[in-house]
């Protein structure tokens, strides 16, 4: 089914086109990603004052609060990720729990 030819671990097999993406592995970029995300949140929080909701009939109660969507996004994401620990402890079993083998073909 698969063609796992040449799974090597050396850098000689880096794809030529990958050089355009190498910046993503730069430690400075990785370290500063949080600033980029925070900058985005701040920018769009401020832009909400430029582009306010104009149709009160089609607004949710929280739409009156500037930045409400950012709060919803942040809190929701944190709830999802923070639930992972307890859920994993509760629901995880050994990989061959059902005795049918894993999922990789």
């Amino acid at each position: 089914m698969r063609d796992q030819t040449d799974i090597s671990t050396g850098d000689d097999k880096i794809h030529p086109a990958a050089r355009y993406l190498m910046w993503t592995a730069n430690s400075g970029v990785v370290r500063n990603f949080i600033r980029f995300a925070l900058g985005g949140v701040t920018l769009f929080f401020l832009l909400q004052f430029v582009f306010p909701f104009t149709d009160p009939k089609h607004m949710a109660p929280w739409d009156h609060v500037p930045g409400a969507w950012a709060v919803i996004g942040f809190v929701s994401y944190c709830i999802v990720v923070l639930s992972a620990g307890p859920l994993f402890r509760w629901l995880s079993r050994p990989e061959d729990y059902y005795g049918e083998g894993g999922t990789d073909g």
Partner: peptide, 25 residues
């Protein structure tokens, strides 16, 4: 493509990205 739809959608997505970066950090 209305101003407030773009802005609020970006708010939600950037806040999620910020949460990811913060939780990673």
């Amino acid at each position: 493509y209305t101003g407030n739809h773009i802005v609020t959608q970006f708010q939600l997505l950037f806040a999620a990205m910020f949460a990811f970066a913060l939780l990673k950090r």
